[in-house]
């Protein structure tokens, strides 16, 4: 029991510190990612997903990682609809639940308002939950891509070996991160601004 809480404390602290160091607690970097004007944060997240995926599934194959530690969530209509509602708020605020709490912790005052709004939104769901449940939007299976040895999750593609699929997907995430340009939108304008600055500099 105590050991579990110590692990929770150490992992939580490491996660929060990393969120701050990669710029995720700063709404400007979220905004630059979502407007595709600087993809450093997106590349960071893609590499993180890829690295963790490869380590988790390679660890499972070599028996170092307990398959029982996986926790796969159900796919249902609410996932898509909820994701889309979250996306609106994410762009408007520049925070998501974890980075909002961490933004508050590093001293951002607007994050306090985000967290307060978050408590209202979560309470709204607590009250309206029976409606979504009654129309079947929360019913679904806990699918994984392939069949993962030792896990009970149904496979979306039963012929696919789930652990190998995880390693391949992990490598694909890292490859996309490497290939993704640092700036996708407004590259021409940025180059023009840089050329302008270079021209102005020698005159000083």
């Amino acid at each position: 029991m105590t050991m579990t809480l110590v692990i929770a404390g150490l992992l939580g602290a490491a996660f929060g510190a990393m969120l701050d160091r990669i710029g995720a607690t700063n709404p400007n970097w979220i905004a630059k990612m979502l407007t595709l004007t600087d993809t450093n944060l997106m590349k960071t997240i893609l590499v993180a997903i890829g690295t963790a995926s490869i380590l988790i599934f390679a660890g499972q194959i070599y028996g170092l990682v307990d398959v029982g530690h996986m926790s796969v969530k159900a796919v249902h209509v609410g996932v898509l609809l909820g994701g889309a509602i979250l996306g609106f708020g994410w762009a408007i605020a520049g925070y998501c639940p974890g980075t909002g709490l961490c933004g508050l912790a590093v001293g951002r005052i607007d994050a306090l308002f985000f967290v307060a709004g978050g408590l209202v939104g979560a309470a709204g769901f607590m009250i309206t939950y029976p409606f979504w449940d009654s129309i079947g939007f929360l019913n679904g299976e806990k699918w994984t891509l392939g069949a993962i040895p030792g896990a009970d999750y149904p496979a979306a593609i039963p012929a696919l070996q789930g652990d190998l699929a995880g390693i391949v997907m992990g490598a694909a995430f890292i490859l996309i991160a490497i290939l993704l340009p640092r700036r996708i939108v407004g590259r021409k304008a940025a180059r023009a601004a840089a050329a302008e600055a270079a021209k102005a500099a020698p005159a000083e």
């Binding site: 969530k73 909002g100 978050g118």
Partner: peptide
């Protein structure tokens, strides 16, 4: 934004950490 993000996250059953990152790394 906070109202929308947390309402959406609970409807979806997870947020950027739980669904997007933890989910995709498990091939969920």
């Amino acid at each position: 934004g906070g109202v929308l993000v947390l309402y959406g996250a609970r409807l979806a059953g997870g947020c950027t950490s739980g669904h997007m990152m933890s989910g995709m790394m498990q091939t969920s």
